[in-house]
């Protein structure tokens, strides 16, 4: 499938955005997403090819454009773990709501 991620040679994108003294991660949540991916991948929940496919081609292509890099990762991890039957959408929804109430 032809996807938005296939951008080699595309024109009109402007200068390469660089950042001085860039940290490895830019926020605590990025660290958590990264660790969850490495850990579930290492545990055999999915393989690297499945993950790459999930965060690039399989995303709703409007999401590919609007989501941050590690937001695409969380989307991909959730998608694969649900498909593998390891978690459910309801579990995610219920836990999110429970945590929201605790935070207030």
């Amino acid at each position: 499938m032809n996807g938005l991620h296939d951008i080699g040679g595309m024109q009109g994108l402007g200068p390469v955005p660089r950042e001085a003294d860039e940290p490895v991660f830019h926020a605590e949540w990025e660290k958590r997403v990264f660790a969850l991916m490495v850990s579930t991948l290492g545990g055999g929940a999915f393989n690297a090819g499945e993950f790459r496919h999930a965060v690039n081609e399989r995303l709703d292509q409007s999401q590919y454009l609007t989501l941050d890099y590690y937001e695409r990762w969380i989307q991909g991890i959730e998608m694969l773990l649900i498909e593998k039957g390891l978690i459910t959408q309801d579990e995610l929804k219920n836990r999110f709501e429970k945590l929201s109430k605790e935070v207030g």
């Binding site: 926020a27 949540w29 969850l36 836990r95």
Partner: peptide
């Protein structure tokens, strides 16, 4: 926190906490 301007930091934090806590509970 380095997030895109249209993301609610609280929501993304909670979303990840939700996933992480479920996976911890299940021992995954």
């Amino acid at each position: 926190n380095g997030q895109p301007h249209d993301t609610e930091p609280k929501d993304i934090d909670l979303r990840i906490k939700a996933l992480e806590s479920i996976l911890l509970d299940k021992g995954l």
